[in-house]
Design a protein around this nucleic acid. Structure first.
Lengths: 194, 194
DNA sequence: CCTACCGATCGGTAGG
DNA sequence: CCTACCGATCGGTAGG
């Protein structure tokens, strides 16, 4: 059934769906809403996708893969723990900045995944968080960081990162690298006068 | 129609709804789900509440009021900017810890409010954030804080605070005051060795 | 990509 | 708090 030609149209469907999921939420977005936004009938969507949830799966797992790949590259480097933490932050923000809409869906709508996808997603997320945690723990052992609560530190970092799609200007006025460096400065160096 | 006797039953309905909204999302929670969880028929819910959204409104605006009141008390004090920031954080966490379920709904489900409630809610939230921002700006002017990006700083703070209901142990094993002080230490003092 | 349609479920009301 | 029910809408399929 001409899979190749359908690929770009499928991409269009997924991207439009992401925009609607971000704006109105996954559950509150109907396939008729999506079809109308694309100028077609609801039934026609099923030529491109198997189900509503397949769209959500694509969005969530594609973002998860990009985040994971970014962090793997950072881990492979020989940088200090401070630098690894900074580069992990920069990489995460760079991935988000490439698609703020998909990032917002990744963060806010993954909960509507059914099993076993939800379980897999949450396991991947825990794994990702733990890898950041290990960098922080390494930095504490090496003496680069003070003896802070690592769980609180990594949760603060993770929440800050994931909240960004909600306040970044979609216009692209914000420079992801600049914001990443500022966040790293603040979390690593603190905001208090030295 | 005996408003007084209905109050506690209405409270039960709202609290059970909050738990379901937190677990499954507002849109994905049906009035039949809620009724079943309470052991009654869906139609019977309407003796206690006017609509599904009225429940969401109660939850969101009640939490918003508590957050506002907490911050107002901090602003009235004569503390330094560091202390005001710390006390603002402690107050916010204390309000959340009193009802983690309602806090999660406040954070994750407010978007399903219809107009004009959504507008009012978002204006209150912006106001709340700006008041924290003013504390940080005051601290920069007074020399207590270094010249960081105030928007980034307040967004980092705000996202850290609002993410907590998602990782706090519901068992109450976490001491809100301890976590608040640690977060304040980290954000005010930084995590890097001095 | 369409028309025509399915069974299920939605929030909510009438009337008791 | 119940039974009985409303019109609207849901995700998805059949068949072209």
């Amino acid at each position: 059934m001409a899979e190749v030609e359908n690929l770009s149209r499928k991409e269009q469907v997924i991207r439009k769906a992401a925009a609607l999921f971000q704006k109105n939420g996954y559950s509150a977005t109907s396939m008729r809403d999506l079809a109308h936004a694309l100028g077609i009938e609801a039934a026609s969507l099923y030529s491109h996708i198997k189900s509503k949830e397949e769209i959500l799966q694509s969005l969530c797992f594609d973002m998860a893969r990009q985040f994971r790949e970014s962090l793997e590259n950072v881990e492979k480097s020989n940088a200090s723990y401070s630098e690894k933490l900074r580069n992990g932050i920069l990489g995460h923000i760079a991935v988000m900045a490439k698609d703020l809409t998909a990032s917002a869906v990744f963060m806010n709508e993954h909960r509507y995944l059914s099993q076993p996808y939800l379980r897999d997603f949450l396991l991947m997320r825990i794994n990702y968080i733990n890898r950041f945690k290990h960098i922080i723990e390494g930095g504490i052992k090496s003496g680069e960081f003070s003896h802070i609560d690592t769980k609180l530190a990594v949760m603060t970092l993770f929440s800050s990162l994931n909240w960004m799609p909600n306040w970044f200007e979609p216009s692209g006025l914000i420079d992801p690298e600049k914001v990443g460096n500022q966040l790293a400065d603040m979390l690593i160096g603190g905001i208090k006068t030295k």
